[in-house]
Amino acid sequence: MPNPFLERKLKLDILKSLRSPAKREPRRTVTCSGCKTELEPDVFALALNVCPSCGLHMYISAAARFTNIFDGGEYSEPFPCAAPRDVLAFPGYAEKAAEQSAKSGLSDAGLAAEGKIGGTYAIAAAIDISFMMGSMGTSAGGTVTRAAESAASRGLPLVIFCAGGGARMQEGVFSLMQMIKTSAAIRRFSGGGGFYVSVITNPTTGGITASFASLADITLAEPGALFGFAGPRVIEQTIGEKLPQGFQSGEFQLDHGFVDAIVPRAEMRGTLARLLALHAGARI
């Protein structure tokens, strides 16, 4: 969604920077991976990492998502994100995890938060793809499970920002078991009357799609988010089928009946607040 105000601010900033020679030194800008527009970091952050020019929803951290949806940007962490467990003693995994942790500033990919969204108290979880592409190992599976269990025991609604390429290969079959573990936790939460909103973000595939991402009462998707089981490359390589433009996008899944609404990031807080309020209002 192009935002005319941000676009104008962007243009003004560019003009200002051209006017004063002192500011013409090379500044670090963000390049939109869609339309290649150069964006000032402040403008980019203000737009929640959505390109003001073409509307492309780019990567945003789990922490920034929480700040965006909780009232006043205030939330607390019900439990910390656990470090990866090298359950298979997989060659090089410990080093890779340490390197990813240093790069991303995260212990692993799954984070949890709690606070008020439009006045309704809720538990949220998010998969941050800056840690090993957001693949699900025992840590992220544990975060989703604990978030669901905590929401169940406290009678709170649950919001999960889904992402990730699927299984954490270095954790092998333990990673596969996370699909069952998280699905079982969502089933228990749901069986107890819990309300769960899943938000599909780019990209959500593999074991994430085939477990908690697809088990919500309401499923929202960010514009352009890839949402499927087998990724496009896997399909093209294994079956040799050419895929049309937009295959498996959130919009495609809306058309095919697997998503309830496409919600731009700027409207996420308002939409979640409305859904949570509607749910609370239904209680007798």
Binding site: S183, A184, T209, L215, G228, V234, T238
Partner: peptide, 26 residues
Amino acid sequence: GAYPGKSAEERGQGQAIAECLYQTSA
């Protein structure tokens, strides 16, 4: 493994598998 094809994706391969895990768990 599950069939990684276009038709399977169009009919919700991921959702179908998730539902199996979800229902069998309870």
